[in-house]
Amino acid sequence: MWRSGSDAGAIAIGVVVEVPTPGTAVKHPEALGADLWRTDEPDLDEPRTGIRLQEIRLTSQEGFLPRVVVKADLALSSASIITMPNGTVFPLDATQANAMERLWGLTTSQSLPALPGASEGQRKLMSHYRRERSNTLRLKKLAEVRARHGKCVCALCGIDDSSKYPRQLSERIFEVHHLLPLATAATPVRTTLDDLVVLCASCHRAVHATSAVEDNYAVLAGHLRGES
């Protein structure tokens, strides 16, 4: 999966789980994100392909693969993903696909020599599932809270983005929390702004300290109100 724009690069890998199917016949139409298109949505009968994402790396800290690294690879420098960046689907031949997998870190590395202490920093593919979340909803929720209060405020502890942190950091510390955890959903669900709250990073971490997320939220809210 390739992200375009100024921060272009590979951000996810996955496998096809549903062959191209008319949009009106897909298994989970609610997952098509009809309300998230910036322009008119394509014809509903246009074929859609179901892809299960296996690993997502959205930031450099998570190990996302930037375009500049892909372009510098001899096997990929002439690939359409580099030469025709305005496209939407980029076929890779076998050599290019192998190069992309190598850059992502899917190839087996040689064993490191035994040294005192522990070996760290070696990139390894960790196969796991991660619930997809809408960044558009996140931004809308943050904007809603700022419009209501004139600043970002944690719904639990009440800290705001001007009381403790410098401006260049304050916009990064507030996160959006789902009141009904997505992890409990058996199928994709439709989320509205009323299903979300804005929390500071510390409260959000505390709420997710255990799998009992809803109970944790209630306990922390009571604790901060002096009820426990």
Rank of each mutant, 00 (worst) to 15 (best):
G23N: 04
L53Y: 10
A75C: 14
N86W: 02
H28T: 08
K27I: 04
P47R: 10
Q110W: 03
V70I: 15
K151R: 15
R167A: 06
D40K: 10
L103G: 00
G150C: 10
Q61Y: 09
C200S: 14
S4F: 06
A79I: 06
D160K: 04
F90P: 03
Q168G: 08
D195K: 04
K164D: 07
V189I: 13
R225V: 01
K141L: 10
L103C: 02
L142T: 11
G50I: 05
G158M: 06
T83I: 04
L224H: 07
A10C: 14
V70N: 00
L106I: 12
Y217S: 02
D7F: 12
L44M: 12
G226Q: 09
A218P: 00
Y129L: 06
A212N: 11
N135K: 12
G5P: 09
V17M: 03
P42G: 05
A155F: 03
I173G: 01
D45S: 09
L58K: 15
N98L: 08
N86Q: 05
L58H: 11
G150R: 13
S228I: 15
G33K: 09
M84P: 03
R205L: 10
L193F: 08
D73N: 13
R130M: 04
H178C: 03
R146L: 05
G50L: 07
R131Q: 09
T107G: 03
C152A: 14
T136H: 14
E46T: 15
G150F: 07
L36N: 10
R52I: 09
L103E: 00
S228M: 05
N86G: 05
A221K: 14
E101K: 06
A143V: 10
L44F: 08
V197L: 13
P166F: 00
V176M: 09
D195W: 03
C154Y: 06
E132H: 13
L92I: 01
R131H: 10
P113A: 11
H223W: 13
Q61K: 10
S4I: 08
P188W: 03
H149A: 09
I173L: 14
R167Q: 07
A12G: 13
P22T: 01
A31S: 10
L220R: 08
A10V: 15
A10P: 01
Q168H: 14
L139Y: 11
H178M: 06
T210A: 07
D35F: 08
I82W: 02
E55R: 06
L36K: 04
P116S: 14
S6V: 03
P42M: 02
R133K: 15
V176E: 00
Q61L: 14
T88F: 15
R48F: 04
P66A: 00
A206T: 13
T184L: 07
R167H: 09
Q96H: 13
R133E: 09
P42V: 01
G222R: 15
T88I: 09
A12P: 01
V70E: 00
A8L: 06
L103T: 00
E227Y: 02
V219Y: 03
G9P: 00
R38P: 06
L53F: 11
H28E: 15
N216F: 02
A183I: 10
